[in-house]
Design a protein around this nucleic acid. Structure first.
Lengths: 231, 231
DNA sequence: GTCTATATTTAGATAGAC
DNA sequence: GTCTATCTAAATATAGAC
C-alpha cells in the first residue's frame, strides 16, 4: 500500500472514529486517546495528520455534514408541500438515530461556546443544512398564505436551530428522577416521569399541522392571507 | 461568623462561580479548579461541599433555574395573547444575554449526552421552564383555532427545546470564515458572511406572526378552525 | 507514515494540619 | 469549615526510532 493511500485511510478512520466517539460519549469525553482507541490507530497520528484534537473535530464535523447533506439534496429538491417537508424531517430524524450527524452538531455546538475555531466549523456545517432548507422553504412559502410574513432564510435558520435543540433535549427525556449529590436539592426530585419522545412525537403532530396548511381550500387561503396582511 | 453561615456563603459562591464558568468558558473548561478560581475559594471545597464536580454542576443547574423561573412566573401568568407570549420570550432572550441561564442549560444539555446524573438535572431544570410554558399555552390554545390540533404539553416541549437550540446556535453566527487545520477542508471556506442575530430577529418576526393570529377576526377564525378540522 | 516512549499540564480526589 | 500538600489518572503534544 502506498503512503498516499495509507494517509487517506488513516485520516478517514480518524474522522469516523471522531464522529463515533462524539456520538457515543459526548464532546466532553473526546480526546486524542479515545478517538484513536475507537479507530484502532495510534494516538500520535491525530497530531501528525490534524495538528490538534480541535482541528480534527472541526474537520470531522464539516466533512461528515457535507456527506450527509449531499445524500439528502435530491430529497430536499423533491419536496413540494409542507407535509412533504415535515415527512423529510422525520426521515432525517430517524436516520439520525443511526448515523447521528445532527447529534454531533449539537455536541460541537456546545463545544463552540468558548472555542472560536470549533464555532466556525460548526457554523459552516449548520449552514449547509440551513441552505438546503432555505431553498425548499423559498419554494413553499411563495405559494402559501405566509409568503409575505416569513422570509425563507430566517425561517430556515429558525427551523434548523430548533431541530438541533430538539435532538439535544431528547436524551434527557428518557431517564428522569434526579439524584442529588452531597447536600441534596432543597425541594428537588419529584416531578412525574416524562416518557415522551419529543422529537418523534412533535414531528408527527407537526405533520398534521402541515397537512392542514397544505389542505386549505382557496377560500380559507384567501381569508388567511387577507387577515395576515392586515397586520 | 458561624460555621453554618460560612457553609451557606461558600456553597452559594461555588454555585454562582459554576454558572459563571459554564457561561464564559463552556462546560468543557469547567473543573474544580476553574470554578474555585472564579469564586475565589479553595479547590478542595468543591469536594467537601458537593462530593464531585458533576454534582455541583447538576445542583447549580437546578437551583439557578428555579430562581430564574420563579422570577418569571408572574410574567408568565400575566400573558393573555400569543403576542404577549412572544414578547415575554424576547424579554427572556435579552435578560439571558446578561444572566445566561438558558446558555448554561444548553451547555449542561450537551454534557448530558454520556452523563446520566447531569441528564437528570438538566431534564429537571428544563422541565421547570416547560411547565410554565405549558400553563400559558393551555390558556392560549383553548381560545385559538389551533386548540384541537396542538396539545399544550407537546408544544411547550417543542418551544422550549427550540429556544435552547436557538440560543446555542447564536454564537456561531457571529464569527465566520472557518480556518482548516493541517490538510485543509476540500472545497471548504467561502460562504458569504452571516450577520444575523437569529434569536433576536426570529423573535421579532415571530411577534408579527403572533400579532396576526391574535388579530384574526371572527370570520377568519371560524374559517381557519373549520379548515383545520377537515384534516 | 507509523510506533514507542516521554515531557508537561491539568483534572479529580483525599489526607491531615489548622 | 477551610487550607496546603499530594497522589493518581488522563490529556496534549513532541522526539526519535523504525
Amino acid at each position: 500500500m502506498s503512503d498516499d493511500a495509507r494517509t487517506t485511510e488513516t485520516r478517514r478512520r480518524l474522522i469516523e472514529a471522531t464522529m463515533e466517539t462524539i456520538r457515543t460519549q459526548g464532546i466532553a469525553k473526546v480526546s486524542a486517546r479515545t478517538i484513536a482507541a475507537a479507530g484502532g490507530v495510534n494516538q500520535a497520528l491525530v497530531f501528525y495528520h490534524f495538528g490538534t484534537v480541535d482541528a480534527l473535530i472541526a474537520h470531522a464535523c464539516v466533512v461528515s455534514t457535507r456527506e450527509r447533506v449531499d445524500s439528502f439534496r435530491a430529497r430536499f429538491d423533491a419536496v413540494t408541500t409542507f407535509t412533504g417537508l415535515v415527512q423529510l424531517g422525520r426521515t432525517l430524524h430517524e436516520e439520525e438515530a443511526a448515523l447521528g450527524n445532527v447529534t454531533v452538531l449539537g455536541q460541537t455546538l456546545a463545544g463552540s461556546q468558548a472555542n472560536p475555531a470549533l464555532a466556525a466549523a460548526t457554523g459552516e456545517a449548520l449552514g449547509m443544512w440551513t441552505e438546503e432548507l432555505e431553498r425548499v422553504l423559498g419554494r413553499l412559502l411563495a405559494d402559501s398564505p405566509f409568503g409575505e410574513l416569513l422570509e425563507p432564510r430566517l425561517l430556515a435558520e429558525l427551523v434548523s436551530s430548533a431541530f438541533i435543540g430538539i435532538e439535544l433535549v431528547a436524551p434527557t427525556r428518557v431517564a428522569d428522577g434526579y439524584a442529588a449529590g452531597a447536600g441534596g436539592i432543597p425541594g428537588g426530585g419529584g416531578a412525574a416521569a416524562r416518557t415522551m419522545d419529543t422529537a418523534g412525537d412533535a414531528l408527527a403532530r407537526l405533520e398534521g399541522l402541515a397537512r392542514s396548511i397544505d389542505g386549505l381550500g382557496p377560500v380559507a387561503r384567501r381569508a388567511l392571507r387577507t387577515a395576515l396582511r392586515r397586520v
